[in-house]
Design a protein around this nucleic acid. Structure first.
Lengths: 198, 198
DNA sequence: GTCTATAATCAGATAGAC
DNA sequence: GTCTATCTGATTATAGAC
């Protein structure tokens, strides 16, 4: 039943270390240890630490986008823009906090990346960012949003608010569905015009 | 007119480097260069890199708290809890984005600190956190807040939302008073009960 | 109080055996 | 594909002259 390759074990270990210890806290010796080998063996699978990390982060962007899109699109064409935003908020929080080490690695280390790598990871991140942009613009164009709010600023506020939960969420305290409910509550009431609230 | 001591120049340089390059990106050689000396001279003023950084971060917590408290308390006793929250949001954003390198260093590097140092900086941060807690509880107890919102979660969402601006704000684009207006708008409408809105 | 010189440490990376 | 042994470079920190 063990079909994990060395390569995938290395990637998994790197994602988890990036998520919990940050960029500089991720040592190749520890990555190797968790993958069941010694540090020089990593170089059979990857050219450098940077290349390994970049692969983890690009994969994290893709997984995160894929999960959110799936959870929103499963609502079908009858869902309102607000219902779609709600689903996206819940999906992002759930995936970030329990689903996947790769996606949480991205929000943890992104701003510490060297410039050229940051640029390439940002290209993978764009799919995620643009999907949120479209969700918010759709809500706005349906007329339910407060007109004074800049949709770009609202998106940045929302995503960073959600990402920050990774810093303070601890299992056993406030549970994820409740955090998601609070986030929807705070953001959507701030975003939606009072007259159009249900 | 130059009354800057070596010590204060070292602290200033460290704060700016922490803010812009993060914890590991802050090299003592660069700190020294900006302070007009070479790296070994730093050890005449500080015992270690960690001790230097800790002093910057503790100072950052204090400055930030002091600025916000001042800007809120200047409103006087006639101000409503919501007006006080509004002033705090604007003050925090302004200080973070233009006022002070020390306070922005804190939000940039806090989560990368070694555990024991994190604990000590957190003690200095508590004054800041508790002041926000009190502002939010006062608003809640005055009856204007939505009762479904957990005040602790709301505080974490708000502070992280505001802190995140340091990652994407660039002078010359959207200006700080406008960002502050958007933040007040989004958070306060999400936080306040519709019936009590002005 | 700052310098030159140097130590000590550590992590990423390479060479080459098996 | 993984190992042992080693190299390289960077960075914190120390010793001691001035």
């Amino acid at each position: 039943m063990e079909d994990t390759t060395s390569r995938s074990r290395i990637l998994d270990a790197t994602a988890d270390l990036l998520r919990t210890r940050g960029l500089q806290g991720t040592k190749l010796s520890e990555v190797a240890k968790r993958a069941g080998m010694l540090a020089p063996s990593l170089y059979h699978h990857f050219d450098s630490k940077d290349q390994l990390i970049e692969e983890v982060l690009v994969e994290g962007c893709h997984r995160n986008t894929r999960y959110i899109v799936t959870q929103v699109e499963v609502l079908g064409s009858s869902a309102s823009p607000i219902e779609r935003l709600e689903a996206a908020i819940t999906a992002h929080l759930t995936f970030l906090l329990t689903g996947d080490q790769y996606s949480s690695a991205v929000s943890r280390v992104f701003q510490d990346l060297p410039d050229d790598m940051k640029r390439r990871v940002l290209a993978a991140y764009a799919g995620f960012d643009n999907y949120w942009r479209d969700l918010i613009l759709a809500a706005r164009q349906s007329g339910v949003a407060r007109s004074e709010l800049d949709p770009t600023v609202a998106r940045k506020f929302l995503i960073n608010m959600l990402d920050s939960t990774a810093e303070w969420y601890r299992p056993g305290h406030l549970e994820i569905p409740e955090i998601a409910r609070q986030a929807c509550h705070l953001f959507l009431h701030g975003f939606i015009q009072p007259e159009t609230q249900p």
